[in-house]
Simulated assay, not measured.
Amino acid sequence: MSNKTVNLIKLSVGTESVEQLAEWQTLRAQKSVDGFTFHTTRMWPKREAEILNGGSIYWVIKGEISARQRIIRFDEKIGEDGIRRCSIVLDNEIIPTVSALKRPFQGWRYLTPDDAPADLPKGRDSEEALPVELNRALAEIGVI
């Protein structure tokens, strides 16, 4: 296995908050075989070994990276249409991150550990986020 690690970043389309993401995933995990939540996508990551070496999926909610989940494994899923898909199996713990602005994009992208926002320190997940305009202005001048 490689000693490098890489993460994925993905838009959480239709999600308004980390809490809503958690609620949706709890319902999904109840329907899974092993109790883990998952996200299914068409593409299989070429950097699978690096992702499985401690990588996470970072969720973009309403234009901001807001949380991450550790990626446990990738499962092959064949749809009713016969098309092979990749099921990204996730740890059930959702870890809030320091907010970081992210423009919309299609599918998922790789995210290096150096570019990933830090986890929010324990106990700070209930703090109110900065107003979007202030957060955007700080990001533009490189403060956050």
Rank of each mutant, 00 (worst) to 15 (best):
D34Q: 09
V143F: 12
Y110H: 00
M43L: 15
L101T: 07
E128H: 13
T40R: 11
G107D: 05
G142I: 07
R124E: 15
R136T: 14
L101A: 10
L11R: 11
W59A: 00
Q106G: 08
I88N: 00
T5G: 03
R42M: 11
M1H: 14
A116I: 00
N3A: 14
W24P: 02
S126Y: 13
E50T: 05
I144S: 04
R42Y: 15
L111V: 00
A118N: 12
V132G: 12
F36T: 11
I95D: 03
K4L: 14
I57P: 00
R70S: 12
I94V: 13
N53W: 03
T97D: 00
N3E: 15
Q30E: 15
S99K: 10
K122M: 08
A129D: 15
A139P: 02
W44V: 08
R28N: 12
R124A: 14
D115H: 06
T41M: 10
I95L: 09
V143G: 03
I9G: 00
P117Y: 01
V89Q: 04
E23F: 08
S32L: 08
V6P: 01
I144R: 10
L11E: 08
E80H: 11
K31F: 07
S17P: 03
E50Q: 12
N135G: 13
S99T: 09
S17F: 07
W108C: 01
V6A: 06
D34I: 02
K10M: 14
L111C: 01
K122H: 12
F105S: 00
T97M: 02
T26P: 06
S2A: 13
G107V: 06
